[in-house]
Design a protein around this nucleic acid. Structure first.
Lengths: 280, 280
DNA sequence: AGGCCCGATACCGCAGGGGTATCGGTGCTG
DNA sequence: CAGCACCGATACCCCTGCGGTATCGGGCCT
């Protein structure tokens, strides 16, 4: 199977429509139809059901969609990492983390690593929440600071950095602000304080009553104004100012901050960073 | 980058020789040379150093070799899994384990899973030690029973099944057979009992004094005959018969038996098996 | 019934992948 | 030191197969 065929198939599967897919691929529809037909013939597998209104995926097609995406990401990663490795003759590493994430932890890690003999140059790339794992998958980054259970860690090697509980942040004057602890269920169903909605990777928001937000300070501002409440790892308490109250959550999942890197990493810099992290 | 180019490059990199690589790929040398040159041009990266006696890899080349192998495995996996999924309309799972591995554990797991409502059909494939991880990587299997730290778990999602210590097995009459415990260093340097050598994935053996072996019963036989000693997980004690003595190893790494599966697994069967394993 | 939307088919042109023959450079060898 | 063997690059040719345009065939809605 060639990556060209995979790209074509993924496009058609995602668009559920040959015409739009061809458009997206910058080609015309007939060769695309032919390529997919040929792929099906070569695999000996029916991937799509042609309907008069577009196409649907078969079971096999769904498998190829998810596996194919992963395979394409792996190929893209190979290409990106090769290019980057060639660009910098000395060992260098791209580390990505959530913008506004626990910076004292990263400072500690980077400082400790910098003291190592022949430490590689570490370029830190801060990106919006949820973008770290994809960057690691497609080779834009070599290491990432991720958060379990929020990020999808599948396919990465990891070493834990810290673990913490989660807390509910409510406005200072709110009736619940005097509570010491509560359950997650109770926290998610406060009548007058709907939890905010965070954007998906593509920038869209889930349905629901809460406000659409994507920024920590923005959220805390809105909590202060009595418009929402929010569940966050307890380390945010370091950034809290007046007007906010913290309630422990008894049954919220622990949040683990991990250092993650792709398998088959040949970079000595990554290895050194991991070694340093494991000693912290 | 097309998989064809990757296959070509990997072949040349592994053979360190255009002619042999072309041979292995079933083509002639000139188009291969051209394809690699074109790949280098398109990447804008020098991958190989041409010498009069063959080729050497550059730093970028080494990156592309390891990343490329992973990418090719991912593509192969996509193809295999798609084919298999198409073949069996009902949900089915291929589980692979080391031939002669802890069978009571697997029986427990499979029995527990079989009682689940709408459990998928599980096909168990026993294969030689060390072959499970590659099978999982290239799509011949959906789940595997692997052993840390022996198997390379990178890139898989895992859930631990059991953890055990390792012991040294010596002939019953041997002077060391009365010892209760010892260190790994001591165990690996018994003058008259060299540890056996196990085959690599390709069937070749490492250099060394010990006998070449690949089978558990064969090893135990040879220990009984006073020709070798062997370090094994303590669970082998269940299979021991007369003529063998067991010595605890104080500082040997713990062996963890894990259930591993590839990320992006869309199979409901895999998910069910994992859930069952996590409840054990 | 007519027009639409969508994928399949027919046909054509050409880029590029693969083949054979040969070259150029390097290092071993008699 | 000349000759040769080895190895990758180059030159040239053929033909596969990819992509393009034009058109068809069949549901579905109006």
């Amino acid at each position: 199977m060639e990556t060209r065929e995979l790209r074509y198939f993924v496009a058609v599967a995602e668009e559920a429509h040959f015409g739009r897919a061809a458009d997206r691929l910058g080609m015309s529809q007939p060769p695309l139809s032919r390529a997919i037909a040929q792929l099906e013939r070569r695999l000996g597998v029916e991937l799509l059901v042609r309907t008069p209104r577009g196409v649907t995926l078969t079971v096999a097609g769904r498998t190829l969609l998810s596996e194919g995406r992963a395979a394409l990401a792996a190929v893209a990663a190979a290409e990106r990492r090769t290019r980057r490795r060639a660009g910098t003759p000395h060992d260098s590493v791209v580390l990505t983390a959530k913008a506004g994430a626990s910076s004292e932890l990263m400072v500690k890690l980077l400082d400790a690593y910098a003291t190592e003999p022949d430490a590689a140059e570490v370029e830190v790339v801060l990106s919006p929440p949820g973008h770290q794992a994809p960057m690691l998958r497609d080779g834009r980054a070599d290491v990432a600071v991720l958060h379990r259970p929020f990020d999808d860690l599948s396919g990465f090697d990891i070493t834990p950095l810290t673990t913490e509980s989660q807390v509910l942040i409510v406005p200072a004057g709110h009736p619940l602000s005097t509570r010491v602890a509560m359950s997650v269920e109770e926290a998610t169903s406060i009548p007058d304080l709907p939890l905010p909605r965070w954007p998906h990777l593509d920038g869209t928001y889930p349905e629901g009553p809460g406000p659409e937000l994507h920024d920590l300070t923005q959220v805390l501002q809105l909590v202060r104004l009595g418009r929402t409440a929010v569940v966050l790892p307890e380390s945010v308490q370091a950034n809290l100012r007046d007007g906010l109250a913290v309630v422990r959550l008894l049954d919220a999942p622990q949040v683990t901050t991990v250092l993650a890197w792709p398998p088959h990493s040949t970079s000595g810099g990554v290895a050194g960073l991991v070694r340093t992290a494991e000693r912290l």
